[in-house]
Design a protein around this nucleic acid. Structure first.
Length: 727
DNA sequence: GTCGGGTACTTTTTT
DNA sequence: AGTACCCGAC
């Protein structure tokens, strides 16, 4: 086995790779080669035969990052036959639990339920229990999730409850866990919480996995939460070989339970820890780094550090102010079109704070015929027809999964509705059966119409038989049979957008075939697990030749030659719901820092004077983060005559660059101005027919207020709005 | 009782 | 785009 090429590393990286046993903290600034370091360290440990592949475990933040790391290790090690376990926290826990969960009273075929299922389950429990003082279901779910992230079980939460409200939440948490167990189902939080409980209660199981994690490496350590910390601590307790990598400036998941103190207090938690600092940035220009540094410097909860680069100064950071979000989007699209002369579309990315911002940006890109794709947002596996099919698979993998069973029964509709399911549930409760078993015995209940009971019996026996055969079948074969036997295609015909839905079903069949090629037969649970645990960032498949759009949260770990961050406004970024405490503001600031440091060469920050979000139009001021950037690093572009509103935005030391025709490029403002007088009727590609109510400005910045009736009154820049006059 | 069609609402970020 | 909820048709 060849040794690892250490010449590829700088002195700090090399020291971290070569460091011996014991706890290690690698503080790795943005773009400092953190993944490279962790990968080389793993390869080095294996190449020097300090450990077998089966004794090394690495945890990353996304499946994609895990796959990349595995690939890079494979390259470094050449043709090794065995590789270490590299996966996300959730996948690692799922894997551990598939093997060990019997000790906790679940079956290894457990389902993993998503947030939607979790909410509907809770909704039902709230209804059934009729507890006084129960708050909104979403809040309850959030609190339960929070408890799980903090490694608190229902009893512990109940013990801490200080009022009726909290008592109700703790009680619902207990009922929720009870119901999940009856369904042999785990939610995301359970994957972590139950792994922790397993390690706490089962010394043998813990010892088995400690051996697998004789060398444990954790990436993005700044975003671990309490229960993850406890799992890491338990796993590494035997050997003490724990290497964590992170950057507290990039911690952006506080709201999900991430505890920045895990990284800030590492030295205290692991006393003999050796600390390495990676401070040389290889990614960005000096200008971008300085701009981002100006922002993050304002955080108090951080360790001082000096990130530097040998890269060129590069271009100034562009700050564009649009009149409206549409104007902003037009600018972004126009500028992307310009960049495409020298960059590939895949080199360009647009970030935003909330998913709702994506639509306007998409529309602008479509108008410019710029290929793009959205990372995250609505997931493929969230489409109704896909979820329907998945419900069948989930019942086959885990017949106790009552939620999936109910969904499956109704897709396609077979005459078994809510009332019949209630009867089934009552029968199940009385005779201590699963809902699935009760379905097969409906004919014994006199209140159910015989025709319906027979349908249920037939469905139950078909499914029961499929459950038995599934162990010898590929996922594709199971899906094929489900589709053929259930009348699913006919059902799809009846749904709106039949074509897209059929395509989605087709895509799912392809995904199944692809999976089968790797796994053979009897791997249904694994297939479902993979689907349940795909992250938004994982879907960032190499969509070569397209501009990427995503939230700032999804941007973590990525880098692009050109980065746009849209919506740099107070009231949006920092988000209004994250302004209550300095901790929240600091997290928003870190999010800004993460976004800015994704950029290699070009960084664009944009805001608007007026933005419509969730149906409300509001005046908006630039984000406070803009004022934290040294104005000398900024090239400012603001609208020519946006009136007093834009002038008020001016901050000391800003150099304004006005709109000129050359900067505007060949924006094809069609529509004769005269035909757009007040009172004129127009048609808009998105909003449909409307009437011009008011006009303002001249030339390129001319705007119109257009009343679109039900869609409301929109403020449009005539040059960019595709308004067509109609008679 | 079932089911489809209508409406309103979603939404901060996500494994 | 999905879902919750309401109403009317069968």
């Amino acid at each position: 086995m060849s040794s690892v090429p250490l010449d590829d590393l700088n002195p700090a990286q090399r020291a971290a790779v070569l460091a011996g046993d014991g706890p290690i903290l690698i503080l790795a600034g943005a773009g400092s080669g953190k993944t490279r370091t962790i990968t080389y360290r793993i390869a080095h440990i294996l190449a020097e035969r300090k450990a077998q592949p089966g004794e090394v475990m690495a945890v990353t933040f996304t499946n994609k990052a895990a796959a990349e790391m595995r690939e890079r290790i494979a390259v470094l090690l050449g043709n090794a036959t065995r590789f270490p376990m590299v996966s996300t926290f959730h996948s690692a826990c799922a894997r551990i639990l598939r093997q060990e969960i019997a000790a906790l009273g679940y079956d290894p075929g457990f389902s993993i339920i998503d947030e939607g299922d979790s909410l509907s389950l809770l909704r039902r429990l709230v209804e059934e229990s009729a507890l006084p003082g129960a708050p909104a279901v979403e809040l309850i779910r959030a609190r339960i999730d929070q408890a799980k992230n903090e490694a608190l079980f229902p009893e512990e939460l109940a013990a801490r409850a200080a009022n009726q409200n909290e008592t109700a939440i703790a009680e619902l948490y207990r009922l929720y866990q009870e119901r999940l167990r009856a369904m042999n189902a785990l939610d995301f939080g359970d994957l972590l919480l139950l792994t922790y409980r397993l390690f706490e209660r089962e010394p043998d199981a813990l010892a088995r996995w400690q051996a697998r994690a004789a060398h444990l490496l954790v990436d993005e350590y700044q975003d671990t939460n309490r229960v993850q910390y406890l799992i890491v601590r338990a796993l590494s307790a035997r050997t003490g070989n724990l290497c964590v990598v992170g950057d507290e400036d990039q911690s952006i998941y506080r709201w999900r339970g991430a505890d920045i103190r895990n990284i800030l207090d590492f030295e205290r938690d692991f006393p003999n820890a050796i600390i390495f600092k990676l401070e040389q940035n290889y990614r960005s220009t000096k200008t971008i780094l300085a701009a981002a540094g100006g922002v993050i410097r304002n955080n108090r909860e951080r360790k001082p550090k000096a990130l530097w680069t040998e890269n060129a100064d590069g271009e100034l950071v562009t700050w564009y102010t649009g009149l409206t979000e549409r104007d902003e989007a037009e600018y972004v699209a126009r500028e992307i079109a310009r960049l495409l002369a020298s960059l590939r579309a895949a080199d360009i990315v647009v970030f935003y704070r909330v998913n709702a911002q994506s639509r306007v940006l998409e529309e602008a890109l479509v108008r410019r015929r710029i290929p793009y794709y959205i990372v995250g947002g609505v997931r493929f596996y969230d489409h109704r027809e896909v979820r329907d099919l998945l419900a069948y698979l989930k019942v086959i993998a885990n017949p106790k999964d009552a939620l999936s069973l109910e969904r499956m029964i109704g897709a396609p509709p077979r005459g078994i509705g809510d009332k019949t399911i209630e009867v089934m549930a009552a029968l199940a409760a009385r005779d201590e059966l699963s809902l699935f078993e009760a379905m097969g015995r409906l004919e014994s209940v006199s209140t159910v119409a015989l025709r319906i009971a027979k349908t249920a019996t037939a469905l139950a026996s078909w499914m029961r038989e499929l459950v038995e055969r599934a162990g010898q079948m590929t996922v594709r074969a199971i899906l094929d049979e489900v589709i053929a036997h259930s009348g699913f295609l006919a059902y799809l015909e009846g749904l709106a957008d039949g074509t897209t839905r059929r395509q989605n079903v087709q895509e799912m069949l392809s995904a199944a075939s692809e999976f089968d090629a790797e796994h053979g037969t009897g791997a249904l649970s694994e297939f479902l697990e993979r689907i349940a645990l795909v992250s938004d960032a994982d879907q960032l498949a190499d969509q070569g030749g397209r501009v990427a759009l995503m939230t700032l949260h999804t941007s973590k770990g990525l880098e692009y030659p050109a980065v746009f961050i849209a919506g740099m406004e107070e009231g949006l970024f920092p988000h209004p719901r994250s302004q209550d405490s300095s901790e929240e503001i600091e997290e928003e600031r870190r999010l800004c820092y993460v976004g800015m440091t994704r950029a290699r060469q070009y960084l664009y920050l944009t805001n608007t004077v007026s933005r419509e979000l969730y149906g409300v139009r509001q005046q908006s001021r630039p984000s406070r983060f803009m004022a934290e950037i040294d104005p000398a690093l900024i090239r400012r572009i603001a609208p020519e005559r946006a009136g007093a509103a834009a002038v008020k935005l001016a901050m000391p030391g800003e150099s304004y660059v006005d709109y000129t025709d050359s900067q505007l490029g060949d924006g094809n403002g069609d529509g004769e101005p005269d035909s757009l007088a007040i009172g004129a009727r127009v048609i808009h590609p998105t909003f449909g027919p409307g009437i011009i109510r008011r006009r303002e400005g001249r030339g390129d910045s001319a705007k119109a207020w257009v009343d679109f009736g039900r869609a409301g009154v929109k403020l449009l820049v005539i040059k960019f709005a595709k308004l067509r006059p109609i008679a």
